[in-house]
Each structure stands twice: as C-alpha cells, then as structure tokens.
Computed example of a mutant assay.
Amino acid sequence: MRARCARAKCRHNACDACVRACPTQAIRADSSGVSLNARDCIRCGNCLFVCPTDAIEGPAPLRHIVDGTIEAVDGPPPTAQELLLLHAAHRLRAVLGDAASPWRASVDAANKTLNALGRSPIDWKLPQTSAAPSPSRRAFLRRGSDRIAHIVAATSAEPASQALCSAFHDVSLRRIDLSLDACTLCGACTRICPHAALSIEALSFVTDHQRCTGCTLCRDSCLESAIDIVDVPCAAAPDIHPLSSGECPRCGRTFFNWQSRQTAPLCHICRKRSMLYGDMSAP
C-alpha cells in the first residue's frame, strides 16, 4: 500500500481519497503516510475504486444485477466510481431503493459525471407500494427465468483507476492543463506519473488525458507550477507538443526545448543556477 501511495511518492501530495471513502475510518492519513487498521476494515471495497494510484489491493465486492438493475442493499453504499464502472462494463442502468437510501448520493455523483460525458444516467427506481401483489425485493433478485441476471465485480483483472479510464475509451474524465510558458521540460512529471499520462516520445511531449487518474503527482512535483489537473471531461485524443533537442554549452547535457517557443540557451538546471547566481549566458 505504502509503496504506490501518492503520499509516499511526493511529500507535497495530500491525497486522502481512501480516507474519505472508508465508512469505518479504518484508513488514516497523517504526516507519516497512510495506514490501514485491518480490524476495522469491513471489506466494502470502496477504497479500491477511489485510489488514483491503485495502491490498495483486494477483491472488488460482488454486485447482483438483474435486467440492468441493482438493489440498494443495506450496508455501506458503493462509490460513484464503482457505479460508473458497472454502468460502462456491465450495463447498469437503474438502482432499486428507497428515496432515503444512502446509495442515492453515490448515484447522483455518478450521474453528474455521466451527464457531463453525454451518457445515459442511472435511473432511481422506488419499490412498488401498490396494494396489488408484487414481487418482493428478495424475489426481484432471485427470479431468473424471465430476466437476465448476473453477479459481477466492477473490476477484477485491471486495477480500478485504470479500468475506469479505459471504460470510457472515447473521452477522458479529466483534463491535464500544461503551461508551455512555465514548463522548463525538466521531466519530473514524466518520471513520477504512475500511468504514463505525461511522456516524452520521439521529440514530442505527450499529455494523454485519457490515462490520467487524477492523482496530481505531476502537479505536486512541478517546481514551476506548470501543471494542473481539472475534473472536466475532454476528448480522449492526447495533446502532442513538438520538441527540439540540443546540447547545453555549460554542462554538456542533452536537453529539450519547445519547438514553438524561443530556444533556451541552457538546460533547465543551468538556467536555474544562472537565475540564482547571475549570468544567463553560456561560457
């Protein structure tokens, strides 16, 4: 858990998604990192779906879907992320439950994302209350002769955060905003990103929005504050920024420049030293 946790990778990162998702406060975060109290864990799986770096491992909860509908059973409600995965991968289209069910908030949050993506929402169905005989909730789940029923987990082979990104393959759930004016192409973001959403390939700087899981490690490690992660859906196509390369006349390192910007005379390390100690020109 600690090795892949965003807090362990960058001391400026303040991710607490698992803490907020845990219904029993079994997960805690402090200056030393994130810890799990196994005695308080009820195996609800909520932490699996909200962790952006897939630092938490475990089996996803099984959900019983009948004709695209799932019952809002007692116990901790699923996260919006799990409902989105069930919607995309297993055609979840409705939730059956009382109006006061704690599942309602998760469905509303999932529908906010689905509406932004232009997808059909998850409907909320109230139990039948008419005097006429009607199937009970238990019968609703058990009937199989005239319904399509299956038990599924939202994700199994693929980590939850990556599964959610690939589930909506034609759009991205968030956008990576990169300031070319501020970025010095030091490469810190490309090295720390756990999902290769930022990379330098064949003299191009690539921002692959569809791969971004929102961990903000790139933003938190950027000394120039050149990156921001915005939770707004956008096209899945990556942004490709052409680069040029050169050799620093001061230290001899090969470094990159934005092809669309004025060529920097020095590599980013020597430029930083020159700003601190004066003399921006090469020797």
Rank of each mutant, 00 (worst) to 15 (best):
A8K: 05
L86M: 04
C44F: 11
T79P: 04
I176D: 00
L203F: 11
G97H: 04
I122N: 01
E247A: 07
S245Q: 14
I269V: 14
L96V: 10
Q262N: 10
A139V: 13
M280N: 07
S161C: 15
A14L: 08
D108N: 13
N115I: 11
G33H: 06
Q262F: 02
C222H: 04
C22D: 08
C22V: 03
I42W: 09
A94K: 08
V50I: 11
R273V: 06
S274Y: 06
C22M: 05
D123N: 08
V19R: 02
R219Y: 03
P283L: 04
R175E: 15
A89R: 12
H209Y: 02
P59S: 14
A88P: 07
R43C: 07
Q128H: 06
A226C: 00
H268A: 04
A157M: 06
E201T: 11
P194K: 08
P133V: 11
T207V: 12
P135L: 15
S31L: 12
C215V: 04
L276I: 11
F168H: 03
D239Q: 12
P135S: 10
P61R: 08
E158H: 03
C186R: 01
H12F: 10
A264L: 12
R147A: 15
G68E: 08
A154S: 15
L164I: 09
R28S: 12
R11P: 00
R4H: 11
R119W: 05
G33K: 07
R39V: 13
R137S: 10
Q81N: 14
P59A: 14
S179A: 00
T190W: 03
I65Y: 06
A88Y: 08
A188K: 13
H209W: 01
A139G: 12
R271Q: 14
P135W: 10
S145G: 07
V152P: 03
I151W: 14
D30A: 08
C218T: 04
R28T: 12
A88I: 09
D67I: 04
C234R: 07
R219T: 09
R119E: 15
I70L: 15
P23K: 06
S120I: 07
I227C: 01
R147S: 14
C218Q: 03
R138E: 14
I65W: 05
C267W: 06
D74P: 11
V152K: 05
S225G: 03
P23M: 07
C267A: 03
V19T: 05
I122P: 00
F256G: 00
T24D: 09
A17M: 02
A282H: 03
V95P: 02
T207A: 15
P249W: 06
I122W: 00
P238A: 14
D279E: 12
S120D: 07
H87Q: 13
P233C: 07
A139E: 15
H90V: 04
I42M: 11
L203N: 14
Q25E: 12
I227T: 02
A226Q: 00
E82W: 02
L180W: 00
C234E: 03
P233H: 09
A157P: 00
G45F: 02
A88C: 10
P194I: 06
R93Q: 15
R20E: 10
A157N: 04
S161E: 01
A197R: 02
T207F: 02
R138D: 15
R93M: 02
L185G: 09
K9N: 08
S130L: 09
I200Y: 04
D146F: 12
T254F: 08
C267V: 06
V171W: 04
L62V: 14
M1S: 10
